[in-house]
């Protein structure tokens, strides 16, 4: 009995950790499992296994349209966020600028401020102008939401970079700009890729912004899922969700090849 107790007391920690891991993965696992059910309503564990829901989804043009919309929005907003964040990171990472801390805190604000706020403001703005929200407005709203993620990743990577590299390039004859482009940028590309992937995924998965701002014609995948889920819960949605999860995992494994996962972990400091 004593021995069992001792083993148990040493094993309790991994058990706890395992339990939490299960907790973290539970809802996603449930959805993926439920997407295979043969019955017409969602159940977990699934009744039987079938791929018919996937087949339905993949041939349904309206789902396809939602995916394309989401993709286009995510790509365009990621691009704009990059155009904003990359130069900002280069400037703010220079030492000796007194306002740098303040400015980077300001640029990080969209993460801290509830998104409903500025999304509401954008919507109201357009209403006051008596016009529907143009696609550009939606893209820009997404861009402002994800720019901080790219900025944060870049700032962290630039922080880690040896400042002497830039100085060495300059001592060899490069102008400041040339030094950035030829020496600094190539060494933060890995980090940038990770930040870009994260931002892309966040933009793709975002619900609140398109929910408020997108017109009925421009349905994104998460919005569509949300609307369906709120009304009628069919395994078809589970299939869509599972597909979305798989694609997300693919994108992030591609981007994480150089250890961006640990980099994202480190940035939280």
């Amino acid at each position: 009995m004593n021995r069992a107790l001792r083993i148990a007391s040493r094993a309790w920690f991994p058990v706890v950790v395992a339990a939490i891991i299960v907790f973290l993965l539970a809802p996603i696992a449930v959805i993926v499992a439920a997407s295979f059910t043969t019955s017409n309503y969602l159940s977990f564990p699934p009744d039987g296994l079938t791929l018919k829901w996937y087949a339905e989804v993949l041939v349904d043009p309206s789902w396809g349209a939602a995916v394309i919309n989401s993709l286009l929005l995510a790509i365009s907003s990621s691009l704009i966020a990059s155009v904003v964040a990359v130069p900002a990171a280069l400037v703010l990472s220079r030492r000796g600028i007194r306002a740098a801390d303040l400015l980077s805190s300001f640029l990080m604000l969209p993460i801290m401020v509830p998104s409903v706020l500025f999304v509401l403001g954008v919507l109201l703005g357009y209403q006051l102008l008596d016009s529907p929200v143009p696609v550009l407005g939606l893209i820009l709203a997404l861009a402002v939401l994800i720019a901080p993620y790219i900025l944060r990743t870049l700032l962290a990577a630039l922080e880690e970079l040896d400042p002497a590299l830039e100085e060495a390039a300059m001592s060899l004859g490069a102008s400041r700009l040339r030094a950035w482009v030829s020496v600094v940028l190539p060494n933060v590309l890995g980090a940038y890729a990770g930040g870009l992937a994260l931002a892309f995924i966040i933009a793709f998965d975002e619900l609140v912004v398109p929910l408020f701002l997108a017109g009925p014609a421009l349905s994104t995948l998460p919005v569509r899922i949300y609307r369906e889920v709120a009304f009628d819960v069919s395994p078809q949605i589970a299939a869509v969700s599972a597909l979305l999860v798989v694609v997300t995992v693919l994108i992030s494994t591609l981007a994480a090849r150089d250890g961006s996962a640990t980099r994202i972990l480190k940035e939280q400091r």
Binding site: I225, L244, V245
Partner: peptide, 30 residues
């Protein structure tokens, strides 16, 4: 690696899908 996956995966899954998963789990009678 397992822990990383467990932490990262939910982060990268849309909140709708996560909520959806809980809806299935929270249904009466499960």
């Amino acid at each position: 690696s397992l822990l990383l996956v467990a932490v990262m995966l939910p982060l990268m899954t849309s909140s709708v899908i996560r909520a959806f998963g809980w809806m299935v789990l929270f249904a009466p009678g499960t």
